[in-house]
């Protein structure tokens, strides 16, 4: 910001300039209101007493505050179960993805073998397809494996779908770690296994953390796969549960939905705020690259 001080000398205030700035401020404030309104309206709905969308005042926080909607959410729906299901699926997916991907990436980065190039190229092609392009076959495969309406089936599909891209990502990172480091370890008697855990993993921690976080947040708002593979209400994830709570029943369930949405959005916004510094760096790094 400081370098802008050098560049723009304050121009003299004239009538037309004053008008321009009034207009500019008006626009900025209107945009801010447009941004805030849906969010405030949702928060206020979550704490409202009435169940119907039609009964809500159009301005936020104009009605009596109440925790009735949260009560309904916990008592009348499987919301708590959905939350725990999602948490469980996200955590296990993160664990499997990290384990499977980092080991595979290590092999691709350190071993030389005939099938390496074709395998890497096929993964490159596979990662271009959206994961649900094969959804009918996934459904039938999971069905034939007896894993329909079972979280394990969904977790396997998630973990598998992310392997191609993530393996490339991690392999790229491992390639930048000098090979002499783990070769030295192996000369000292450590096998590939030990040098992987003792030498490579600690160095690759930032990338592995990144992978763990993205594979944890991925399943939270994913909709298509859980809707396809999970059937019973108690097994659903948050995205499907919330969608079906409100789809076609806007008027009756909006306030309860709002309560559920607030409970998801708040942790996400906290994580976002904590990560903001990191994220802007990632964004900037992405932008600077030619």
């Amino acid at each position: 910001m400081t370098n802008r001080d050098l560049t723009m000398r304050r121009p003299k205030m004239t009538v037309s300039r004053a008008l321009t700035y009034t207009l500019l401020y008006t626009i900025l404030v209107v945009v801010a209101l447009l941004v805030l309104y849906p969010l405030l309206f949702t928060v206020s709905s979550a704490f409202s007493k009435g169940d119907a969308l039609a009964g809500l005042r159009v301005y936020p926080f104009q009605q009596e505050l109440s925790l009735r909607q949260f009560d309904r959410l916990f008592q009348k729906t499987n919301y708590v179960k959905w939350y725990l299901n999602t948490l469980k699926i996200a955590a296990i997916n993160s664990l499997i993805s990290v384990t499977v991907t980092t080991v595979a990436a290590y092999v691709f980065s350190r071993f030389r073998f005939r099938a390496k190039k074709p395998l890497l190229m096929s993964m490159l092609i596979l990662q271009m397809f959206p994961s649900f392009a094969g959804m009918i076959a996934l459904y039938i495969l999971v069905w034939r494996m007896g894993l329909l309406d079972n979280h394990l089936g969904l977790i396997l599909v998630y973990a598998a779908g992310n392997i191609p891209y993530n393996t490339w990502l991690i392999k790229g990172y491992l390639d930048t770690i000098p090979k002499s480091l783990d070769e030295a370890g192996r000369v000292d008697g450590a096998g590939y296994f030990i040098s992987f855990f003792k030498i490579i993993l600690p160095i690759a921690r930032p990338m592995v953390t990144f992978l763990a976080i993205t594979s944890f947040t991925g399943p939270w708002m994913d909709f298509i796969l859980p809707r396809l593979l999970l059937k019973s209400d108690g097994n659903k994830t948050l995205a499907v549960g919330l969608f079906e709570m409100i789809n076609g029943r806007e008027n009756n369930n909006f306030t309860m939905f709002a309560a559920g949405a607030v409970l998801v959005a708040v942790p996400f916004m906290i994580i976002f705020a904590l990560n903001q510094q990191y994220m802007t760096q990632v964004l900037a790094a992405g932008a600077v690259k030619e």
């Binding site: 595979a104 392009a133 039938i140 599909v157 973990a159 392997i163």
Partner: peptide, 18 residues
């Protein structure tokens, strides 16, 4: 193997099927 098996059964086979 785990990575390749998962990819073959849950990515490649479904795409071929589609």
């Amino acid at each position: 193997s785990p990575a390749m098996l998962l990819i073959i059964f849950f990515v490649a086979v479904p795409l071929a099927f589609s």
